[in-house]
């Protein structure tokens, strides 16, 4: 056996240096690309606001940049996005949390180990599939109950989006609930509590910030979701909270303009950057909030 002591001054191997340089380049590239996107977004948005005052953007109630009579009020698009996201959360929150509670508290460990990855696969179904599912199946189905429901509407894509988001909410909530230490569960049971009360009074409150984070990430997915609403919600930016009529979300508007024949560099074209910036700020805010809540959960007195 070679029993010389390792030489502290021996130089690090060349491959190791190359690999670390390559890894650094990859990391730097993704940061640079992100920075580039944000910068383009920023400059084009500034360009847009040179011509359209912020006050119009935020206080006008009509969005008609592609018409002769131009209005640049963002609210109809925000309302459309809020409406579809709202219906999505109405589905995803209760379903997500019930699945999470079932998986972490009631399912036998074997079942849990099978279902958890299945959930994660479901989250990867291409959203265009969900979009056509909403348009060609759910909308006609709902029209059986709600005759006034238009062919394009916010209700049906909203609900389908909820199904799409449920696995994410369920999976993240399940992580939060599963990470509640067994000692707290036992503490509650030892006080003469049944399972349900232990879940309600001890386990869910303890996992609260993680569960809230899963909701918020779900909302942020819903806000950013494009395909389902572009296919099934319509292209009519009207300021309404009526779930039955066609609307347009921020994302669907961006799709409409980028695929349409609006010439580059025009004011009409630049609206998509302003809307994109708005979208970016909103999802960023939600993601940061979710991050903060998850940190809190990890740090929490567990």
């Amino acid at each position: 056996m070679d029993n010389r002591k390792p030489d502290l001054l021996q130089s690090r191997s060349l491959t190791e240096r190359w690999i670390s340089a390559a890894l650094f380049a990859c990391a730097a590239m993704s940061v640079a690309v992100t920075a580039g996107i944000i910068m383009v977004l920023f400059f084009e948005t500034v360009e847009f606001f040179r011509q359209v005052p912020l006050s119009e953007f935020f206080f006008d109630t009509q969005w008609t940049p592609l018409f002769d009579q131009k209005h640049f009020g963002i609210w109809p698009l925000i309302a459309g996005t809020a409406l579809t996201s709202f219906f999505a959360m109405i589905v995803a929150v209760p379903m997500g949390i019930l699945i999470a509670i079932f998986l972490s508290e009631f399912a036998p460990e074997r079942l849990r180990r099978i279902l958890k990855p299945v959930l994660e696969v479901l989250a990867g179904v291409p959203t265009v599939v969900y979009g056509y599912f909403a348009l060609t199946f759910v909308t006609p189905l709902l029209q059986g109950f709600i005759p006034e429901l238009a062919g394009f509407n916010s209700l049906s894509p909203g609900l389908v989006m909820g199904i799409m988001i449920t696995p994410i909410v369920a999976s993240l909530s399940e992580d939060a609930i599963y990470s509640v230490p067994a000692s707290l569960r036992e503490g509650a049971i030892a006080l003469g509590s049944n399972r349900l009360r232990a879940i309600r009074h001890v386990i869910l409150p303890t996992a609260f910030s993680g569960i809230a984070a899963s909701f918020i990430l779900g909302i942020s997915r819903a806000i950013g979701e494009t395909m389902i609403v572009a296919i099934a919600a319509g292209q009519q930016p009207v300021l309404t909270l009526d779930p039955r009529v066609p609307i347009e979300t921020m994302t669907a508007y961006i799709v409409q303009v980028s695929l349409g024949d609006t010439p580059h560099g025009t004011l009409e074209y630049n609206t998509i950057f302003a809307v994109g910036a708005m979208l970016f700020v909103m999802t960023l805010a939600f993601n940061l909030l979710a991050l903060y809540l998850r940190r809190k959960l990890l740090k929490g007195a567990l």
Binding site: S183, G187, L191, G192, P205, T206
Partner: peptide, 24 residues
């Protein structure tokens, strides 16, 4: 238990009285 396990989201008071909601 061996390791103290107060309920983290509850105050001192609520911890002592935790049996009430937990037993319903």
């Amino acid at each position: 238990f061996q390791k103290p396990n107060p309920f983290p989201m509850m105050s001192v008071k609520d911890n002592v009285l935790a049996g009430i909601p937990l037993q319903g």
